[in-house]
Design a protein around this nucleic acid. Sequence first.
DNA 1: CGGGGCCTTGATAACTTTCAAGTGGAGTGG
DNA 2: CCACTCCACTTGAAAGTTATCAAGGCCCCG
Lengths: 226, 226
Amino acid sequence: MQSALHFDARQAQGDIGVHAPRRRSLSDPVPRRIQTGQHLFHERDSAHFVYQIVSGVVRLTRLQKDGRRQVIAFGFPGDVVGLPSDGRHTTECDAIAPCEILAHRCTTLMQPELDPDLHRFLMQAALDEIRFLQDHFLMLGRRLALEKTAAFLTLLLDRIGESLGAYTLVRLPMNRSDIADYLGLTPETVSRTVTELRCRKVLALDDANTVVVLDPNALRDLADGA
Amino acid sequence: MQSALHFDARQAQGDIGVHAPRRRSLSDPVPRRIQTGQHLFHERDSAHFVYQIVSGVVRLTRLQKDGRRQVIAFGFPGDVVGLPSDGRHTTECDAIAPCEILAHRCTTLMQPELDPDLHRFLMQAALDEIRFLQDHFLMLGRRLALEKTAAFLTLLLDRIGESLGAYTLVRLPMNRSDIADYLGLTPETVSRTVTELRCRKVLALDDANTVVVLDPNALRDLADGA
DNA sequence: CGGGGCCTTGATAACTTTCAAGTGGAGTGG
DNA sequence: CCACTCCACTTGAAAGTTATCAAGGCCCCG
């Protein structure tokens, strides 16, 4: 247990909504800092805020009756997470890296007049989220673990790749289990697949969570089923 | 080829937007009728309308480079389909049963003042769509074909089941390939799985597309991994 | 009556999961 | 500074599940 570290969403919402200074957008004036492992919200929580990731990475998950877990998405800088349905959050959300996060009032979703600019921003975020979730289907729908993993790494490459001379560095903020639960595989299979990609000289690993993409084109081809 | 039957979205949009009488909502005054096999829109089409299904069923798909197809969703009465990202449709959409459909102008998405009620309706539709897509993940993420198929049939049971005395009738508007492409399986595996459910007395089939759910609880248990 | 599409079923191959063991690095305490 | 522990990752072997390839049945329709 790490109750001392546990981030109480209701408490935080109180802080933000009641005590924090406000700007025209009714948003956090400055990003809130969140530590690894802390929760932003839980599934079925009454949703008072949506969250915009400024830095860091969060993990959105759904828990199943039988205890298994599905990772719905990872939230990277620029993403908006916590969009509610029927006034409630639809997933768990916790940080897998230290984050800076802006909170925006949910009321703006259904009341454009409160903040027209923010409202438009959130509408666009919702529409983009739909497209992104559809993209995720193409990954889960792929048949082979190699294709799924290559598609996932391609996504990260485009999203958080850091140029490293001729190659590109991808720092994985999530562990093998997270990737497995995102792709519908087991951690062992993910591990084996990464090993296979390394043997094919598509990747090199500095350590388990630091990937160097040696051959981006080969990676994309594998992702597309070549 | 069935070019005579092919529904040209741009043509239809012209009809709706320019010639059709308008109401306060800028929507179709009466539902437009669509026949099986006709397209509402294609992936990457510039999006001028979103569509509300009044009756019938549509199929939302994404095509892959290698020719494979992922069924993203089926649109049933009450659903809104065609929500755009970056002003473009993100999937193919065609009817798999005769449909009545209302078209709503996309401009309302980003300009609440054009029709506040419709705007709120569409925002809610977008948020609901996000939750629904997340639900779909739990199906695709399941490990066994039996669990996936049971989860899918449970969804249809709740959505379009028709009470039939002690049992519930589910008329499948889609074929085995559609189900397979929705669940990330092959048509053969879907067929075998349905046969298995029939052997277990969970289902009975009138014909291949007419399912009688004999034991809904068993179906739900299987869907949850029991 | 013939053709085509869809569904079903069978046999085999390919793939992934499961179970188990071993490796290595980070953090802790002596 | 070193030994120890823990945890994540990796690797191996066997079992289980699904895909693939192939064939047959059924129904609708021309």
